[in-house]
Write a protein that binds this DNA or RNA. Structure first.
Lengths: 231, 231
DNA sequence: CGTGTGATTTGTGTATACACTGATGGCGAT
DNA sequence: ATCGCCATCAGTGTATACACAAATCACACG
């Protein structure tokens, strides 16, 4: 694989993970040394990060872009538009078997979440499978690409306002309804159920964010682990 | 300005103009010589074009991406989702004076189009002003960015299926309604009027495309000039 | 005459050298 | 002591040299 692509993926993951916090300056020489490559592929990676919005060009070089709580609502406005449309299109073109499998999994999420180990990670894995199935079903590269961008930024936000177990249970029911609508080929229901799900998801995140502003931020800063501490 | 940015803008415009047709291979050395710069900034420009979807990476280098009539519907599906949302948000945040000015202009489009010279160009200029006003009003960088991508691809398609004078007159009325709804702060109407407009726009383009498949394609291939020949 | 193999060539991927700009720190003058 | 100017330096922008991979063409062998 090309060094430039590896550098891009590495930096991208470090930014979404939070290892490279917002405002970090990404010096070309510094990153080149750290990644053991030359400046040329690093430059390539930085340009891609900029075009994706994960980094911004400053007069003094490139730095990791800011992501604030105000951004959450803006991001959800775009997400709402794209994913409702995606759900509608998926209901039209779907391979029913794929979504029937997903439906069963979403209906058994309570089992998944009762296992105390790594539950939230497993749930996000399931949501990723749903996203992949949607990407397949919409058969629209432009839409898939636009949603991928939104998901990238969303991944950064997940580290700021994490869902607790109760919210995950509700989310599973909402997801199950979306999947059911897609199986039934009911585009309107799929779109509206997505609307409902995203409204609830945003509300939960905003409430979480508000409670973080009043309380200390220490309790939620660790980036790994499971959902026990916030349940 | 940086050589890389100039190269990007140049190539980008040549692709959207159709000067560099789909399938053209963009050799690094070839473009570097042609633009009078070295390969490094050319590479940078090519990577940006790829991330924007205007070019694709092939095993044998980079080439201009294909844009077919099937893509039109897919692009409009994304456009529909984004612009309806944008209209809704704009109705909420708009600066009414800006849109009142635009409304007057859209109401006088018939004068603009009766002037036989450069009429379509002037109309697209007016639409650009509307787009800019929307970008300002939505106050959402994510949405603005997503719409910019769609508009870029749309610009390429405009050269394939051009609007005639009658369609432009109808479009002006549709645009005027959207603007009126935004002035009134009626988000639902703004969104639905946008939906109607995009449906009509797509229908017109598809009909045009179908008629091009039956007739000879010679009559519409020239890339400059005004709308007289298709009116 | 056809096919296979090897050499040449073309073009990308990467590293590095050079140039220029903007910042920073020190030194001198007021 | 403070302000201003000059020098040095850190870091990006660009060019170019080198490495490597793939495709093509030619030549030889079957």
């Amino acid at each position: 694989m090309r060094a430039g692509d590896r550098a891009y993926q590495t930096l991208r993951e470090e930014i979404t993970n939070g290892d490279l916090p917002a405002g970090t300056v990404l010096g070309e020489v510094e990153q080149a040394v750290r990644l053991g490559i030359s400046r040329t592929p690093v430059r390539e990676a930085l340009r891609q990060l900029i075009s994706e919005g994960l980094a911004v060009q400053r007069p003094r070089g490139v730095e990791v872009s800011e992501v604030s709580f105000e951004n959450i609502s803006e991001l959800y406005d775009v997400r709402l538009a794209l994913e409702c449309q995606a759900a509608r299109l998926a209901a039209r073109n779907r391979d029913a078997d794929v979504f029937r499998t997903l439906l069963v999994d979403f209906q058994h999420v309570s089992d998944l979440l009762n296992t105390r180990d790594r539950n939230r990670h497993d749930y996000y894995e399931l949501v990723n499978r749903l996203d992949d199935a949607l990407d397949q079903a919409v058969r629209n590269p432009y839409l898939v690409s636009a949603m991928a961008t939104v998901r990238t930024h969303l991944a950064r936000i997940r580290h700021m306002a994490r869902s607790d177990r109760a919210r995950l249970m509700d989310a599973a029911r909402e997801h199950a309804l979306i999947v059911q609508a897609i199986i039934d080929g009911d585009g309107d229901l799929a779109a509206h159920a997505t609307h409902v799900h995203l409204y609830n998801s945003l509300s939960h995140r905003l409430a979480k964010a508000a409670s973080l502003e009043t309380h200390s931020a220490d309790a939620v800063s660790p980036d790994e682990g499971d959902a026990r501490e916030t349940a």
